[in-house]
Amino acid sequence: MGTYSGVSVVTDTLEITPEILALVAEIDEFKGAWRALGTLAPERLSALRRVATIESIGSSTRIEGSRLTDADVERLLSNLDVKTFGSRDEQEVAGYAQVMEMVFALFDAIDLTENHITQLHRDLLAFSSKDERHRGAYKTLPNNVSAFDADGKEIAVVFETATPFDTPRKMQELVAWTRSALSEASLHPLLVAAIFAVVFLEIHPFQDGNGRLSRILTTLLLLRAGYAYVPYSSLESVIENSKEGYYLALRQTQRTIRGAKPNWQPWIVYFLRALQSQKRRLEKKIETERIIAGTLPELSLRIIETAKERGRITNGDIVNLTGANRNTVKKHLARLVDAGHLTQHGTGKGTWYRVSTGDEWAR
């Protein structure tokens, strides 16, 4: 990592193109406008955050091979107090959820240090029995990124990561550079976060969990830099939906990192475009929230809110929660189904409803 251990080397090799400037300006404009955009009722913001959190957990773990859907994640989150999970996918989701909530709640107190990074890794794998021996500790075995055949046999090394011997030094340099760049404001914090993420993944400092932890640490850096809207729109979902571009940009930059002139461009452009998509998704959600809030009756809004929070609802749930007349609730539910805000499942006494997955407001 010596070729980019100093701020001057990074700034000397990083070309700030018009596209990069435009992307940073657009993201920062939204950052400044968030206070005005975020004036929705607290319970509605809370519901937006819950949906984004489910998407983030589902997407980040699926990027690494999990097979759990967002609906599976939602069911699992409602039972996190159980503390025992039957599959590795469930263990990974539980750990990711726990660490995300910690970062959302305590980001001001979680400075970027090696100690905090290893603690977050330990907590990320807290429920993973397979990872018990190495959680919270740098790798002791090589973990090159490899290609495997159908039988699980390694057929090629796609990318060679840092050796276990070099990892502690490289991590020390990366953390020191990142802290220095942020404190001295020598680079825009979005560019610092981008460089941190790509170098962290090039080092691959832990035996497992590096991809998930890189996305947790990206969120931490963004929140600490004042991008307070991040919890309300899933960056992980954007990455999952552009996974080929994600890996291509990583490899294009990572292949050059150990040379005299690292090519930061592919990764930084991908990273900023992903942040652009994240904020545009949130803009649409906020606008749709406002439209719905201005056109739907209060009881209908409460029905949608309850459906988002619980995942599924029945007529009886709403009657018990609001005290409204059963027939009145039934009419509101029917209108919400006709308008595409809810989908109906089952018939008769077994009828239940959930927020329509095709409804942009619900995504």
Rank of each mutant, 00 (worst) to 15 (best):
M1R: 01
L14F: 07
P18S: 11
A22W: 02
A22D: 03
A22E: 05
I27Q: 09
E29C: 06
E29T: 10
T39K: 11
L48I: 07
I54L: 14
I57S: 03
S59T: 08
T61A: 02
G65A: 14
G65S: 13
E74T: 00
L76T: 05
D81Q: 12
S87R: 03
E90H: 07
E90F: 05
D111R: 12
L112R: 09
T113G: 12
E114P: 06
E114M: 12
N115C: 04
H116K: 05
H116S: 15
I117E: 05
T118F: 08
Q119N: 13
L120D: 01
S128K: 11
A137T: 07
Y138F: 15
T140L: 07
A147F: 11
K153F: 01
E154I: 15
I155P: 03
T161A: 13
A162W: 01
P168C: 09
L182V: 03
L190E: 02
F196Q: 06
F200M: 06
F200W: 09
I203V: 15
I216W: 00
T219H: 00
L220C: 09
L221A: 03
L223H: 06
A225G: 05
Y227W: 08
S234W: 04
E240F: 13
N241D: 04
S242H: 10
S242K: 01
K243Y: 12
L248E: 15
R251N: 14
Q252M: 10
Q254V: 11
Q254L: 09
R255C: 02
R255T: 13
A260D: 13
K261W: 06
N263T: 09
W267L: 04
L272K: 04
K279C: 08
R281M: 09
L282C: 13
L282E: 04
E298A: 14
L299N: 08
I318A: 00
G323Y: 02
R326M: 07
N327W: 02
V337Q: 12
G340Y: 10
G340T: 10
H341G: 04
T343K: 15
G346Q: 02
R354D: 14
R363I: 02
